[in-house]
Design a protein around this nucleic acid. Structure first.
Lengths: 156, 156
DNA sequence: TATTGTTATACTCTATAACTATA
DNA sequence: TATAGTTATAGAGTATAACAATA
């Protein structure tokens, strides 16, 4: 299986990295000001979304899902907790752990965020029709591979 | 055309923003160490690539294409110029402008970068087959809309 | 001894204001 | 007056080391 790992010289694979970065940046530039009016930054949105999808998580697990350092998550959660959007409480089973959960107010905020971001995506991705956007979503979801943790090799 | 701009409540559009961020971050985490062995960071790669594709550009135009502030481009170009990968020279027509061009050494470096990044994409996007990757590339290219500048409204 | 949350700290990336030289 | 390049600087995001509490 060595050959499949070698790039084909005649027809080089077209890298998606630069494009991914470009579209992501464009989306961010439009989203940040809109999110600012709601009192949040992109990182907050990701954290709230994961907490809704998982129904609550420890800080270490949450940091893993967000792909961010657990030390930086502390301040982020402080901000969310101050605003009353999340709650921290000690785990009864393991008193080292903080169980973080979305509050009702946090859920309502997230709905407003979803609404605002959907409108922005509609604008930024206007070059794609509905079917293409659905296709893009499916490809990215499959590529992200969120369910299956990379267990094959240690450096994954 | 107002209706098409409204989100459908019953079947909410599935946002690609979070997925885009996730895959982009995963790609970055693998790329940065590989690029470090070649002496560059992601920003350098984007700049070198644009300079190759455009055949040279002024700093202001380059900043626009890279979607970065022109003030931050100065230091980036200083690094690239010190290593001999790009050249700056005054424009004869407009002596305010610096024409930036890729050198032969810069082109060779970019080839090595392309090779390394292709291998990394091959690994990170292993959940997608060749046809799907091609599809993803085309969708992102269309979404990026690099050729057509957004001229409809002033806030684009 | 290892893990969870925490603090302090440094380093990178990004954004803003002000300067110069040219137009 | 406006634009291109530059500098200085402040803010946000990120990564590392060390500590207390708990397992």
């Amino acid at each position: 299986m060595l050959i499949s790992a070698l790039p084909v010289i005649d027809q080089p694979a077209r890298r998606v990295g630069a494009l991914l970065e470009h579209v992501n940046r464009q989306l961010r530039q439009h989203s940040v000001p809109a999110l600012e009016t709601l009192g949040v930054r992109p990182r907050h949105v990701l954290a709230l979304t994961v907490l809704r999808d998982t129904g609550g998580s420890s800080q270490a697990d949450l940091a893993g899902l967000l792909q961010m350092d657990r030390t930086n998550l502390v301040g982020l959660l402080n901000e969310l907790e101050t605003e009353g959007w999340v709650e921290r409480r000690r785990s009864p089973e393991d008193r080292r752990r903080h169980l973080v959960e979305l509050t009702a107010a946090g859920g309502e905020l997230l709905s407003r965020i979803d609404f605002a971001l959907a409108a922005i995506e509609d604008h930024v991705l206007s070059a794609l029709d509905a079917a293409q956007r659905e296709q893009l979503y499916e490809l990215l979801r499959q590529a992200a591979n969120l369910e299956a943790a990379c267990t094959e090799s240690p450096d994954c």
